[in-house]
Simulated scan of single mutants.
Amino acid sequence: MSNIVIVFDFDKTIIDCDSDNWLIDELGFTDLFNQLLPTMPWNSVMDKMMMEFHANGVTIEEIEKVLHRIPIHHRIVPAIKAAYALGCDLRVVSDANMFYIETILKHLGISEYFSEINTNPGYVNEEGRVRISPYHDFNKCSHGCTLCPPNMCKGLIIDRIQNTISEVDKKRFIYLGDGAGDYCPSLRLRERDFVMPRKNFPIWDLICKDPLLIKAEINGWSDGEELEQVLLHLINKIMMEEHVQFISTDCKLQTLSIPVLESMPKALSVRP
Rank of each mutant, 00 (worst) to 15 (best):
Q229S: 15
F138N: 03
N163G: 09
K12A: 08
E61F: 10
D47V: 03
P259D: 00
F10V: 04
I104G: 10
R129F: 01
L90R: 15
V260W: 10
I207E: 13
H73P: 00
K215L: 04
A82V: 09
F33V: 02
I165F: 02
I157W: 11
M239K: 11
P259N: 04
R198M: 08
I15M: 10
K140D: 06
V92N: 05
D95K: 15
L253P: 03
P134E: 08
N219G: 09
T255N: 02
L231A: 10
E167S: 07
S19N: 08
K140N: 09
L67A: 08
G224H: 14
N97A: 13
L234Q: 12
R131N: 05
L189I: 06
Q245P: 04
I80M: 15
I14V: 12
G181H: 11
V5N: 07
R129A: 01
K199S: 05
E112A: 10
C153H: 14
E262S: 07
H233Q: 09
L231V: 11
Y175W: 03
N125R: 00
G87N: 12
C208M: 12
S269Y: 12
P78D: 14
G181V: 02
M98T: 14
D169Q: 06
D210N: 14
F99N: 05
P272T: 03
G57Q: 05
M50L: 09
P202Y: 05
P38H: 13
V230T: 13
L234P: 15
V45Y: 14
L232V: 14
N120C: 01
Y113H: 08
L37R: 13
M40R: 13
P121F: 07
D210E: 15
V270Q: 04
H107R: 11
G109V: 03
S94I: 05
C208F: 02
P38Q: 08
L108V: 01
L256F: 04
R271D: 02
P202Q: 11
L261Y: 03
Y135I: 01
C145H: 04
L253E: 10
D223G: 14
E191C: 00
G181Y: 09
N120Q: 02
D11Y: 02
T13C: 07
I101F: 08
P71I: 07
P41V: 14
A79N: 11
P41K: 08
P121M: 08
I14Y: 03
L37A: 10
D223W: 13
L268Y: 13
D250K: 13
C145G: 07
R91Y: 15
V5I: 10
N3Y: 07
N118I: 08
V5Q: 11
P41N: 15
D18P: 00
R129S: 04
Y84E: 07
E61S: 15
C145F: 04
F246T: 07
Q35F: 11
F53Y: 01
I174R: 00
S133M: 09
P78M: 12
E127K: 10
L232N: 15
S2H: 07
I235C: 06
F33A: 13
N151K: 06
